[in-house]
Amino acid sequence: MVRTRFVNGLRILNALPGVKFLFANPFRLTADKSTFYHPQELFALQLKRKPIRIKPPETKYKTPGVFTVRAFPTAEEINLEALLPVLEDALSLKAEHIQQSLDVLRAVNESTLGCESQEIYVFREGVVVLWNVPSIAINNILAEVHKFEHHRYANHVVEQDSETIGYVYNYNQEDYVGMTEKQEVMLSPTNTQWEKYVTSHVLAANVKLTVWERQLEKYIRDVEFITEDLKYGRQIRMSEHRVLRKHGAIFALRHVINLSSALLEPPQMMNYTIRLDTMYKDLNTFYAMQKRLRFIKEKMNHCLELILLLSAYLKDKHRLRLEWLVIGLILIELCFETFYCVDRFFPIFK
């Protein structure tokens, strides 16, 4: 009864002209027990803010005429020969190797007739580049690719180190291809296959270099305490076995970047024209590939010098320990010989 009178009083106050009730709420006030709220509870409910949703990066490219290309670093290596029939059978794509390159696989969705084509470029070094592919299809494609990967990256690495960029077609100046002022890739309306391949090559090199930078930063954090110990003259808190492993890790990274990776070189193809070469250099400049590569090599050289210094220090320490051990053994032998000589000329035990 009291609750009903309270609700009726609230309705009368809300009905008065020029009066805005302090505890107005979006819920319907009734005398029902399940929908009745105490005024303090109503005020607490109104203070709850709606959570802010962060839009994904690809929402930037929802402008008509602007399409999206995304690159994902998924693993150290992908078995393209085993992946080729799966793309054709399971995903119904037309897949083939790029001309004069067995390390790149190109797949096209032929069902998108009359629209912008959906293309996929899979690199043997563990990078998947998708052109105009929706997010739902991306998850399905990556799930199939994961089955043929070696040394797969963690999911957070795949997402954080991925790259998304928009691309448009140049219908006014067909001679110009490259980056625009809006940070979008400009393609020509005709012969887009090789332009997309060059762009995919640069995107693959960019995301792969990002993974290497992250690995090097983790390596630097792991050995950062050594410089502090050397600076303040503290005891080195690293064994020879661990130093050897760190030495092997930095050499393995240098081997991948300097010797085994082909993504840091221009793509190999027959019709590599001057326009494609200009486009390749333009994209490399946009992502600062040469500058980042120079920095990462300088960091690796510094880490290698630190590990070599530490290895030499531990070797000297081990050598010094062996020398003192030999000196101790010589002293023990000298004591025994001295005791033997004294006992021979001055028998004290007879």
Rank of each mutant, 00 (worst) to 15 (best):
N8M: 15
G9L: 14
G9C: 13
N14C: 14
P17I: 02
F21G: 02
F23A: 13
N25P: 02
F27Q: 11
R53H: 13
P56T: 10
K62H: 13
V66D: 06
F67R: 01
A71T: 08
F72R: 06
A75N: 03
A75S: 04
L83K: 03
V86I: 01
L91A: 15
Q100E: 15
L102T: 11
D103E: 13
G114I: 05
Q118T: 05
E119Q: 06
R124H: 08
V128L: 03
V129C: 09
L130T: 02
W131F: 11
I136G: 10
A137W: 06
N140V: 07
A143F: 06
E144S: 12
H150I: 15
H156K: 04
H156E: 15
V157L: 06
D161H: 14
D161M: 14
E163Y: 05
G166P: 00
Y169C: 04
N170V: 04
N170A: 02
Y171C: 07
D175M: 08
M179I: 09
M186Q: 10
L187S: 08
P189I: 07
K196R: 11
T199G: 10
T199V: 10
L203Q: 03
A204S: 04
V207N: 03
L209C: 07
R214M: 13
V223P: 07
K231S: 04
G233K: 03
R234A: 04
I236D: 00
R237I: 10
R237K: 11
M238N: 04
E240N: 07
V243I: 15
R245T: 11
H247K: 11
G248Y: 12
F251N: 13
A252K: 11
L253Y: 00
H255A: 12
V256S: 12
I257V: 08
L264N: 12
E265A: 14
L283D: 05
L283C: 01
T285M: 12
F286M: 07
K291Q: 13
R292W: 04
I296C: 01
K297L: 13
C303Y: 00
L304F: 10
L308W: 06
L308T: 13
L310S: 00
L310F: 06
R319T: 14
L320A: 09
L322V: 10
L322N: 09
W324N: 14
L325F: 14
E333A: 15
L334Y: 04
C335S: 15
T338N: 10
F345D: 12
P347L: 00
I348W: 15
